[in-house]
């Protein structure tokens, strides 16, 4: 009799174990699917950018319907009991501000990518600066482990407010000489952000060339609307023959 009870108890125990294991597996599968659909658990992630594989890219090249925030220098603290002021406006280079946090899942890939700054394939005359929130809102010990050796890390919640950062990761490209934001947005990984960054830099170069051409035309008395600007190739060829 006792043996029969023992056998039944064992069978029930095995069945319960299988059931619990099945439930846990099913739960994990549901979480994985939700994560793929963009309903991750990352509290810092901007809306719609919660998962690295499905992140919505915001074009760094244009402002869209919302105007960019005014560019400003960074004032904050470093990770070693230091005070930091980083010049952004008026700097002779562009600055890519990477707003990251130590806890956000998507940020981990960026921290890892930035660890070897030389491998980032960065556009020329562009400086990378990581901006986190102030120490009370961050884990300074985690940040010290994550901080890349060659990239400045500034803790400044004020910068998050000034640049109207919706969550992490988020990137803002500032043209130092123009003193204005050229583009902003986010991406799932460094390759995506770097592609947009390069497009933004190329577009800025095109803008600068356009300004230079306009200036040279004006210097030679060719104002906007001048008929000479609208002559066809055939007309120009005819004039040169005559």
């Amino acid at each position: 009799m006792t043996n029969a009870v023992l056998v039944i108890e064992t069978v029930v125990l095995v069945l319960l174990t299988v059931l619990v294991a099945g439930l846990l597996r099913s739960h994990a599968e549901i979480l994985r699917r939700l994560h793929e659909l963009g309903a991750g658990l990352d509290p810092d992630a901007p809306i719609g950018v919660s998962d690295p594989t499905t992140a919505r890219l915001v074009d760094l090249r244009s402002s869209g319907s919302d105007p960019f925030a005014d560019a400003s220098d960074l004032d904050g603290a470093g990770l070693r009991d230091d005070a930091v002021h980083v010049s952004v406006v008026g700097a002779r280079h562009r600055t890519l501000l990477a707003f990251l946090s130590s806890g956000c899942l998507t940020c981990q890939g960026f921290w890892e990518a930035f660890a070897d700054a030389r491998s980032l394939d960065f556009p020329e005359a562009t400086r990378l600066v990581v901006v986190t929130k102030d120490a009370p809102e961050e884990s300074i010990s985690a940040l010290r482990k994550l901080a890349p050796p060659d990239v400045p890390v500034v803790m400044s919640s004020a910068a998050w407010t000034d640049y109207r950062v919706p969550g992490s990761p988020y990137f803002v490209l500032v043209d130092g000489q123009a003193g204005r934001v050229r583009g902003e947005g986010t991406g799932a990984n460094w390759d995506q952000v770097n592609n947009l960054l390069r497009q933004a830099v190329d577009d800025a170069s095109d803008d600068a060339r356009e300004v230079r051409i306009d200036r040279e035309l004006l210097a030679h008395g060719v104002a906007p609307g001048d008929p000479s600007l609208y002559r066809t190739a055939a007309q120009i060829a005819e004039d040169s023959r005559a």
Binding site: D75, G78, D81, D82, A83, V84, H85, V86
Partner: peptide
Amino acid sequence: KSLAAHGLTLGLPAGWEGRIQRRG
């Protein structure tokens, strides 16, 4: 711009940057 730490306060001209630190 003002920068202060470790008993030092200073002003920075536009375009300058700075760091006041103490070695570990």
